[in-house]
Simulated scan of single mutants.
Amino acid sequence: MNRPRTVQAPCGPPAGDTPAAPDAPTPASANPAPARKPKRKKPRHSMPEDWAPRPDVRDQMADECPGVDQDAELRSFRDWAMAEGKTSTDWNLNYRRWIRNEAKWNRNRPGGDTRRGMTPAECLAGIPTSTDTPRRVTSTQLPAFPTDMEILR
Score class of each variant (00 low, 15 high):
N92E: 00
L93C: 04
L93K: 11
L93Y: 09
N94H: 10
Y95W: 13
R96W: 00
R96D: 01
I99R: 07
N101I: 05
N101T: 10
N101P: 02
N101R: 15
E102H: 09
E102L: 07
E102W: 03
A103Y: 04
A103G: 02
A103T: 02
A103S: 09
K104S: 12
N106W: 03
R107D: 06
R107L: 04
N108S: 02
N108Y: 01
N108I: 00
R109D: 04
R109T: 00
R109Y: 00
R109N: 01
P110I: 00
P110K: 05
G111F: 10
G111P: 13
G112K: 11
D113P: 02
T114H: 15
R115F: 01
R116Y: 13
T119L: 10
P120D: 07
A121W: 02
C123A: 11
L124Q: 05
L124R: 05
A125G: 06
I127M: 13
I127P: 03
P128L: 09
T129Y: 04
S130N: 07
S130V: 02
S130T: 09
T131F: 14
D132A: 05
T133F: 05
R135N: 12
V137S: 15
S139H: 13
T140N: 09
Q141E: 15
L142Q: 09
L142N: 06
